[in-house]
Design a protein around this nucleic acid. Structure first.
Length: 1200
RNA sequence: GGGCUUGUAGCUCAGGUGGUUAGAGCGCUACACUGAUAAUGUAGAGGUCCGUGGUUCGAGUCCACGCAGGCCCA
């Protein structure tokens, strides 16, 4: 059987399709898992995609990453089960359905039943499943599509319930509140979706206050008081909702913002005070007056005193200065007749203010209620949302009425101001109708906004905001009160202002395990590392409890039933338990019958679970809490729920937990990565994954985000069809590390295809062509021994072993990009462009000698190993190459030496591990009862045979490559074509080892650049001119600041000095009048000039070319020309490579005749000419064009 | 606004622990080669290494502050 030969160009898309069909036919994916039965498991978790949209090219990226490492671990012999999954719940699906039906959330349960709605969601969510499955196959992503986990299935939901119950039993699931937009007039919370309706944000004029909070004098605040000269110190904060001030429990500053301490007077009471506010905002509240117009500014009065005053503005030194008209000067004079000067007396950063305590604004001594945790309240804390855009650069915090406030308060252990309501339940100071609770002292029962329909244009109408402002002014606690126009959200149904209000929510108490989350995160190998320590680490550091509640319909329902008063509750952990509880409820006549009594299929979705009522221990009915849970819980629960654990399959779960590896987009950091981690830590006190790759985005080639709207989205199907899956995958991986964003340019895929796959294909074709001609058979044993290989063979095999080490290292370290680039460089630069190019003659010359066999075996091994190494990244082409390389071999007679089962003996000189790549007999290829299947994906990856790595050999081959390159360059400069042989090149060498190294590869160099020999020039020759270059690294460490002078001195070294330094090992010189001693290591000696020769240099290497032409050289050049022309003629005439010819030349040119006389044998052997004769007259032939003349020629195929 | 991240040739990217002349591929130009040929070789053009300060004898590399793009969070 022969190696398959192909016409160019290869259709890579077709290769993908053919291999895919072959995989399917032989169940290769299944075998890649089943053949590893009993081996260690490599656990991989598939992050479930949602099939409600078409897959994009970025999915190919993410899945390529996943696939690479799963295939790689399989090659290492591990078993890698890959269960697929689908994420099926969540808001995007609901919104999609609502859009398609033309309804809103409000209509659910009215225009459409919940049952119908959810049915619609169920259908929608799998709409693109077929497309996804198709892409999965075509891109070569191996994942089990037949038995995926689906998050809407009852078993999956049941597992989620069981996990929730575990958390509940640990006390980690609790009911609390979050701050959400709320419409008191409508009595309902509003979603962000509703808030984004047009017209909800309107301009309104509200009373705003800059309030003053009096600082308590203690150790932390002493630094303020030392500046205050006995005056009270206040921190200022601005609010557009003064009604929230009585609920204030904290003040937030920006850590890096600078704050000024200002000595001034209260504008309403004229009491002297010291205020703190952001330095950048001082000018907003204090005027700089230039009374005399001199440009000398003095701070006078507080700004708002001048409201209505007539001032004129002009510029002084680039800043606007307001000048007060004379008659208003009096207004600035206080009661005691003094001018109200102000001045900045100090400055601090926000960080320096954190921890300072202050007095409550409306305290219990004034009739306001005390509250729990009060002793922890009224502190300055850092807030990441604080700016100096408006206000004072300090933000008033009321945890019950702001989402930021709530979060930052929780992080800093600031309590919320909550009071007991009639039923003994804790409640905020505003009730659900929008009015203060009765306990609020003088403001008790007041409406916070006009929710009761008062005529707010009436003269006696006073808002709560105004009354609070008045009270603060009286108490010298208001610095500035003014009407301010701003936009504020309004309820789209009632037109009344929205409040940010605490609404019930269920939480998982992730903060209880915060330290453990952080600790275990440090054991996870993140790629890139910064995502783990930065984005994820910071997120953990600022962790708040996980809000589970969603007021939605299509999702996993919260399995908690409660009595009306909330005093009794039950968390259900299984369908079995639910049935039991229903039976109890039926017995207590809370339900009429058990809907599941007769084994009916259980659907745990709404509305069915909402119709189940349970009975409490005290006999009261219990109703399900209507919330659904966050869909992220669904996906975070997949390590457990995919096996229906903990209901069953405990062993299976244990075996597959935690994951060795997961990979998703970096946008999942706070999504899936977090929920996996959080649940694993809380449930198992373990990480959920040991290695994780967060890949970046795939952008359009101009760096823009891909979007259908812009029309720059890349269609993955078209791409794969056009370029084939391998080039697509290779490009995605090799072009940039997966964690960087990738600019997807189809031209780049073309380049990969041409340069890498094209070169590799050419190399294979070359091999196949000649191996078939020679009927070369791969032999697993009795190969040419290492010592009989040529220098070049041993070199490329050494490089190959180095490549194995390198690729394994990169893949072990989860860096596929470096692996791909290493393979690419090996194939294009080393294998194709050096090994094959220099070995070409060995393949097509003569009989199948030992040397020729060595060349075949070497190239064969390289190609097979490359097929294996590339197969995780380019699974189809790797398979294609492997099959082509081994199909022929697998038909050879059984190897008599390999008698051990499953582990053929390897010849000693090759030292392959079991599952030799040479014959396609991977371990696992032998599935019981079937013939061996030669799939590269079933083999075991070769181990590098480090004994075959020869660093010296690799080094001297690099010398050969560089010397050849320099010689080519010199030929170019001298206009001497390579076909013209030259006598010698000159290479100066400064040490024997270089001389020896180059000597080994002299033949290669001579052949490559067509010279007769290399002449080494050493010191003995006396023609070397040495120059010297300072070794700055060494000198810098030694001489530091004097380096420049020393360097200059070294560059002036004379030949005598250089030689002295070399001979004596040191040289004393003088620099700036000071003696120093130079060592040989302080300088780099090179010979980059040969007087009288044209030289080329590359670093320390220098080459000169002897361009003298003798008659003999000329004749040989002519012979080569002739060979070349004849070869062209052969090719143009359509001759086969092995055809023999007879040649007749016109006897016209004496030079040519002389050349043929001298080199006839050479010409005949090169052109496979049986005869090469001259005739006076040549008819019916072609004409060979030489440089200076034309020669008629007749060529015929020799039949005998 | 905060966190993370990226910024090097026209394009895509390399540039351990600081070392003076910053590289590769593609593309472009010229020449050569012609039994791997839609390949290959040699040479050339092409750089304020995002900016500004700082540390240092020396900064693409370290530090600070910015600018621009991206992601996540607000």
């Amino acid at each position: 059987m022969k190696y398959p030969e192909y016409k160019q160009p290869l259709n890579y898309g077709q290769v993908g399709e053919d291999i895919l069909a072959w995989w399917k036919e032989h169940g290769i994916f299944e075998k890649s898992v089943s053949s590893r039965e009993g081996q260690p498991t490599f656990v991989f978790y598939e992050g479930p995609p949602s099939a409600n949209g078409a897959p994009g090219i970025h999915h190919v990226m993410a899945r390529t990453v996943k696939d690479i490492f799963c295939r790689y671990q399989t090659l290492l012999g591990k078993q890698v089960p890959r269960k697929g999954g689908w994420d099926t719940h969540g808001l995007p699906i609901e919104l999609q359905v609502e859009k398609e039906l033309g309804i809103t959330k409000e209509d659910i349960g009215k225009k459409i039943t919940v049952e119908e709605y959810n049915q619609r969601c169920r259908e929608t969510v799998m709409r693109f499943k077929a497309q996804w499955d198709d892409l999965t196959e075509k891109m070569g992503y191996w994942v089990d599509l037949d038995d995926p986990y689906v998050t809407f299935e009852p078993e999956y939901i049941e597992s989620c319930w069981a996990l929730l119950k575990k958390l509940y039993d640990k006390g980690l699931l609790y009911k609390g509140y979050t701050i959400q937009p709320y419409s008191p007039a409508a009595g309902t919370g509003l979603s962000s979706h509703e808030l984004n309706q047009p017209g909800t944000y309107r301009d309104v004029k509200d009373t705003t206050i800059v309030a003053e909070f009096e600082v308590k004098r203690d150790e932390k605040s002493e630094k303020l008081f030392v500046l205050a000269d006995g005056l009270p110190v206040f921190i200022t904060a601005w609010t557009t909702t003064p009604w929230t001030l009585p609920a204030n429990t904290g003040l937030a500053v920006g850590k890096n913002i600078r704050y000024a301490v200002v000595r001034t007077f209260n504008p309403y009471t004229y009491e002297p005070q010291v205020l703190v506010l952001a330095k950048d905002l001082v000018r907003r509240y204090f005027l700089y007056l230039d009374i005399e117009g001199t440009g000398n500014e003095i701070g006078v009065g507080s700004g708002h005193l001048m409201i209505g005053a007539e001032t004129s503005k002009h510029e002084v030194n680039g800043s606007v200065v307001e000048t007060l008209n004379q008659e208003f000067r009096k207004a600035l004079v206080g009661k005691d007749g003094k001018v109200l000067h102000w001045s900045v007396v100090g400055e601090f950063t926000g960080a320096e203010l954190v921890g300072i305590s202050y007095e409550r604004l409306f305290g219990s001594e004034d009739g306001f209620p005390t509250f729990e945790g009060e002793e922890r309240a009224f502190r300055v804390i850092p807030g990441d949302f604080v700016t100096t855009e408006d206000g004072t650069g300090i933000v008033h915090i009321s945890p019950t009425f702001g989402a930021d406030d709530f979060r930052v308060a929780q992080q800093n252990d600031i309590p919320a101001l909550m009071v007991m309501d009639d039923q003994g339940k804790l409640s905020p100071i505003v009730d659900r109708t929008g009015r203060y609770v009765a306990q609020m002292g003088e403001f008790g029962s007041r409406w916070v906004k006009n929710y009761d329909g008062h005529d707010d244009t009436a003269a006696d109408y006073r808002t709560l905001d105004v009354d609070i402002s008045v009270r603060l002014k009286e108490r010298s606690r208001a610095f500035k009160v003014e009407k301010y126009e701003h936009t504020y959200p309004h309820c789209w149904r009632t037109d009344k202002p929205v409040l940010y209000y605490p609404l019930d929510s269920w939480f998982i108490k992730t903060t209880a395990v915060k330290d453990r989350l952080i600790e275990l995160n440090k054991t996870i190998n993140w790629k890139p590392e910064s995502t783990g320590s930065g984005r994820f680490g910071n997120w953990l550091e600022n962790l708040v409890d996980w809000n589970l509640s969603r007021s939605r319909y299509w999702g996993t329902p919260l399995p908690i039933w409660r009595t009306q008063d909330g005093t009794e509750e039950l968390c259900i952990g299984s369908i079995e338990q639910l049935k039991t509880e229903i039976d109890k409820a039926v017995a207590a006549e809370v339900m009429t019958h058990n809907p599941y009594a007769n084994g009916e299929k259980v659907d745990l979705h709404r509305p069915y679970v909402d119709d189940i009522f349970l009975v409490s221990p005290s006999g009261l009915p219990m109703y399900r809490e209507t919330d659904l849970i966050d869909v992220w819980f669904d996906s975070g629960a997949m390590p457990y729920a995919q096996w229906h654990y903990p209901i069953e399959n405990g062993e299976k779960f244990q075996k597959n937990f935690p994951a060795d590896f997961i990979a998703e987009g970096v946008d999942q950091t706070r999504g899936w990565f977090f929920t996996l981690h959080a649940l694993a830590v809380m449930l198992e006190d373990s990480v959920a994954f040991k290695n994780v790759m967060a890949n970046g985005l795939v952008l359009a080639k101009d760096g823009q985000k891909m979007s259908k709207r812009l029309g720059n989205a890349v269609d993955p199907f078209a791409t794969i069809k056009q370029f084939g899956p391998d080039a697509t995958r290779w490009y995605l991986i090799a072009n940039a590390p997966p964690w960087d964003n990738l600019k997807f340019d189809p031209a780049g895929v073309t380049e990969v295809q041409r340069r890498f796959f094209g070169t590799l294909f050419n190399t294979y074709s070359f091999y196949a062509l000649y191996a078939n001609l020679d009927e070369f058979q791969t032999r697993e044993f009795d190969r040419i021994s290492q010592s009989d290989l040529s220098e070049l063979d041993r070199w490329i095999l050494s490089k190959l072993q180095s490549l194995i080490v390198e690729v394994r290292g990169h893949l072990d370290g989860y860096d596929p990009t470096k692996a791909a680039r290493a393979i690419q460089d090996f194939v294009t630069d080393q294998l194709s462009n050096w090994y094959v190019r220099l070995s070409r003659r060995r393949f097509w010359k003569g009989e199948l000698t030992a040397d020729k066999r060595a060349a075949y075996e070497t190239l064969q091994e390289c190609l097979v190993v490359v097929a294996q190494l590339m197969s995780p990244i380019a699974p189809f082409f790797g398979e294609w190459l492997y099959k082509n390389m081994t199909a022929q071999a697998s038909t050879s007679p059984p190897d008599p030496l390999s008698k051990k089962e499953g582990a053929p003996d390897m010849p000693q000189n090759l030292n392959f591990t079991a599952g030799s790549p040479l014959l396609g007999r991977g371990a696992g290829g032998e599935v019981a009862g079937t013939a061996p299947v030669a799939s590269v994906h079933l083999t075991l990856l070769v181990e590098a045979d480090t004994a075959r790595i020869d660093a010296k050999l690799e080094e001297r081959m690099e010398l050969a490559q560089r010397i050849s390159s320099l010689a080519h360059s010199l030929r170019k400069k001298s206009v001497l074509k390579v076909r013209q042989p030259l006598q010698r090149i000159l290479v100066p060498v400064l040490n024997d080892s270089t001389k020896e190294q180059v000597g080994f590869v002299e033949d290669l160099i001579c052949a490559e650049i067509n010279v007769k020999h290399i002449e080494f020039l050493d010191d003995e020759s006396g023609v070397l001119v040495k120059s010297v270059k300072p070794n700055f690294k060494r000198l810098g460490q030694q001489y530091g600041p004097r380096l420049k002078a020393v360097g200059a001195r070294i560059q002036q070294m004379t030949a005598a000095e250089i030689s002295k330094l070399e001979k004596e090992g040191s040289l004393a010189v003088e620099v700036d009048g000071q003696p120093i001693t130079l060592a040989p290591d302080d300088v780099e000696i090179r010979t980059d000039d040969l007087p009288g020769w044209l030289v080329a240099t590359d670093g320390p290497l220098t080459v000169a070319l002897d361009v003298t032409l003798t008659d003999e050289l000329r004749q040989e050049g002519l012979a080569r020309e002739l060979v070349n022309r004849l070869q062209n003629l052969r090719k143009d005439s359509g001759l086969e490579v092995q055809d023999k010819i007879r040649v007749t030349l016109a006897d016209q040119q004496p030079e040519l005749t002389a050349a043929v006389a001298a080199f006839g044998d050479y010409i005949r052997s090169e052109t496979q000419a049986l005869a090469l004769t001259f005739a006076a007259d040549v008819k019916g032939g072609s004409v060979l064009e030489f440089d200076d003349y034309s020669v008629p020629v007749h060529l015929e195929v020799a039949t005998a």
